[in-house]
């Protein structure tokens, strides 16, 4: 179900915790699984559960509690823009509006070509760099002016 590379990464995470506390690796295991599969289907969650020796429902609870896991398919590039107050004071909402216009979609929508999904995010701990956005959870982009957004979208299309 998951590649040998992913399993190796998960094993490395398991080793961080006491031998009888394997379930502590559930968050990183789900993250690694999502990196490989794009999103977390029920089968993927069940596989992770089995791998960690946990009940599937316990892993599903984790996957559904934390916002960065996707329990439904998303576009190849998921863009999350922070619109919380500190960012909003420095253009967070304007940046989000600009992206919506450029992609022709609203929050929680995916472009017809399946390339982009846009979401609204909460504080990413980078408020001094507003506007900020995250691409596929791990790539943080700071000081996103309209020109930089144009550039980013062009790069992501490649």
């Amino acid at each position: 179900m998951l590649s040998p590379e992913s399993l190796k990464k998960i094993d490395r995470e398991i080793a961080k915790y006491p031998p009888d506390q394997k379930q502590s690796a559930s968050m990183s295991a789900l993250r690694i699984a999502q990196e490989e599969r794009g999103w977390l289907a029920n089968e993927t969650i069940e596989f992770v559960a089995e791998y960690l020796g946990m009940p599937a429902i316990a892993v599903y609870e984790v996957a559904s509690f934390y916002n960065m896991y996707d329990l439904a398919p998303v576009g190849a590039k998921k863009i999350v823009v922070c619109t919380n107050l500190p960012c909003a004071l420095s253009g967070g909402v304007h940046a989000a509006e600009y992206i919506k216009k450029k992609l022709g979609i609203d929050f929680n929508e995916t472009t017809a070509d399946g390339l982009f999904t846009l979401k609204e995010g909460e504080c990413m701990g980078a408020c001094g760099d507003a506007p900020v956005l995250l691409v596929n959870n791990h790539q943080m982009c700071s000081w996103m002016t309209e020109e930089k957004i144009d550039q980013l979208l062009a790069d992501l299309k490649k």
Binding site: E61, M68, E122
Partner: peptide
């Protein structure tokens, strides 16, 4: 973490290290 403000609360943080919500 993976996107939950509440995990900054210290006992939620411990639950989260234990691999729970």
């Amino acid at each position: 973490g993976y996107g939950a403000y509440i995990c900054g609360e210290e006992t939620a943080l411990l639950e989260s290290i234990e691999g729970k919500k």
